[in-house]
Design a protein around this nucleic acid. Structure first.
Length: 519
DNA sequence: GGCCGTGTTGGGAAT
DNA sequence: GATTCCCAACACGGC
């Protein structure tokens, strides 16, 4: 009875076959492994997941589909729509699956934990074994938990590093399987049963150019600057890490420019986030590069290894904090700050999001974010400071939403923690350290080439005025074919220096208030 | 992984 | 060759 050994691999954030312990566990004693991706309502909605981020997932799935097929999984990835807790039980019943594999460490999001629990609960009831093999982190959550000894999750990098080292060395990544158990007769019957149970014809991953699919979701299919997929991830790892050990060993994050027309960092984050690349694989590649390099490697937190530690650090905070850390209220980590949300603030926010602040550096960054789905870490600092404590005094939660929708590396925990950091709500409190939208970019890019690329209206503005075009005399604006107020917007904040000073005082008041009420 | 004003210093050109 | 001046490049501290 071949169906007795059919197992379902529920794909979410581990969109790869290398170093995939859940896949490996599913393969044991299985005659057929059926990989399933469930596109839920939340991810379908362009208001939650923007077109670029969505396409990154779709490309990753298409690549994974190919890879499964090459391993003998004839049907490739089974692509269905609906809510996992509703769809998956129908599938395991239809195919008489004995087990379902998924990684509960993958997502710290509170709503995902609920979905995970629901799916696991229903599986238990149906006598379907749940295979939970943590794949997404360097160390599994349970290992951190043991070493936390019932204590709180670390909230500083140095305490996290201690915890990380107590967990021992990072396990070596598993290699990708050459073939995956698949019995075509069983699988074909299973697919038919799934079609019947879900009342759908097509179970394949939508192809590139499938207009019906994209239109149905009210989406435009986007051409990506950073293509999704495991093959792309491994290619990039090879290019930026394995083949340039000296660069890896000398890497210091704060010294990389946010304005590079070619990224000055690795851009591995989208691949790590979607699980196209295993963190353990990346970790060992970085460690090997450090060893192979001529000079002494730089150290965390600014080194490349340090960047992987930051990710892991934020993931543990999201996972081990019971409350929703993407919100300010009820968030034990976040300082309570009286952000503005009147009509003026709403307008500032809308202009910020649209890249129409009248500050060229801000607008260039927001345009790159919208068009390409990735921006440099310090560019994130710049626009986050501007939206929150620096200029607009809008809550970091609003910025979180925009980043969550637009970034191809959007991770719920990482994103929450970084927004709290930049807005001086948690982890970092030096509110008088404020980024200037004029001088910050100039340091790296005095000619303003970055601005010229992403804000074409300013392409012919002389270097002298590229960061402050409102200062250009009328005849200069005319010559550059860029009249401020007509071809490029007026500033939404007239005086950055004065406004940021006022805002510093407001943060200070909130700080004083919270320190007098707490304790 | 601030910014800015102020102060110091050290090399190079002019005298 | 010694002196002066200029200014870029840092360093520091207050916000």
């Amino acid at each position: 009875m071949p169906s007795a050994q059919t197992k379902i691999l529920w794909l979410r954030k581990t969109l790869r076959i290398h170093d995939n312990p859940t896949l490996k566990a599913c393969m044991e004693d299985a005659s057929t492994v059926l990989p399933v991706y469930v596109l839920d309502k939340w991810h379908s909605n362009p208001q939650n997941v923007g077109d670029v981020r969505f396409e990154f997932i779709m490309e990753s799935l298409r690549n994974l589909d190919e890879k499964f097929k090459k391993c003998g999984v004839d049907a490739g990835v089974i692509f269905v729509r609906g809510e996992p807790e509703k769809v998956l039980p129908k599938i395991w019943e239809a195919v008489d699956a004995k087990a379902i594999g998924f990684d509960t460490s993958e997502e710290a999001e509170k709503h995902s934990q609920k979905t995970d629990e629901d799916v696991a609960g229903l599986a238990n009831k149906a006598d379907v074994k749940v295979i939970d093999e943590p794949a997404h982190w360097m160390h599994p959550p349970g290992l951190y938990e043991r070493h936390m000894n019932g204590g709180e999750v670390p909230t500083t990098m140095s305490s996290f590093e201690t915890l990380f080292s107590q967990c021992g060395s990072v396990r070596e990544p598993l290699s990708a399987p050459k073939s995956i158990p698949y019995d075509k007769g069983t699988a074909d019957k299973a697919l038919d049963a799934i079609r019947k149970a879900l009342d759908v014809e097509d179970l394949t991953v939508p192809k590139s150019g499938d207009n019906k699919f994209y239109k149905g979701l009210k989406r435009e299919q986007r051409k990506l600057r950073f293509p999704g997929g495991e093959d792309e991830a491994l290619k990039r790892l090879e290019k930026v890490v394995e083949k340039q050990p000296d660069w890896v060993a000398s890497f210091e994050k704060p010294k990389t420019a946010p304005t590079g027309l070619e990224p000055q960092t690795t851009v591995l984050s989208p691949y790590l986030n979607a699980g196209c690349l295993s963190l353990r694989r990346a970790w060992h590649a970085v460690k090997k590069a450090e060893k192979d390099a001529k000079g002494k490697p730089t150290q965390p937190p600014t080194s490349l290894a340090g960047q992987l530690l930051w990710r892991e650090h934020w993931l543990t905070i999201g996972y081990f904090t019971e409350e929703d850390i993407s919100k300010m209220k009820g968030n034990p980590l976040a300082r309570q700050i009286d952000w503005d949300w009147d009509n003026d603030a709403k307008e500032l926010f809308a202009k910020w999001e649209a890249g129409e602040t009248g500050y060229p550096f801000i607008d260039a960054i927001m345009t790159q974010l919208r068009e390409e789905g990735w921006i440099h870490h310090l560019a994130r600092h710049m626009v986050a400071c501007f939206l929150t404590r620096g200029d607009c005094f809008v809550s970091w939660e609003k910025g979180f939403d925009v980043f969550d929708r637009l970034l191809i590396d959007a991770d719920w925990s990482v994103n929450s923690c970084n927004w709290m950091w930049l807005s001086c709500s948690a982890f970092f409190y030096q509110y008088f350290r404020c980024y200037s939208p004029i001088s910050f970019g100039k340091k790296w890019d005095p000619d303003g080439d970055y601005i010229r690329k992403y804000v074409p209206a300013l392409k012919d503005m002389p270097k002298k005025y590229i960061y402050e075009p409102w200062k250009a005399p009328r005849e200069v604006q005319e010559k550059a074919k860029c009249i401020i107020g007509k071809d490029y917007p007026e500033r939404i904040i007239e005086d950055h220096t004065a406004t940021s000073k006022e805002n510093m005082n407001r943060i200070k008041e909130d700080y004083d208030l919270s320190s007098s009420t707490v304790k």
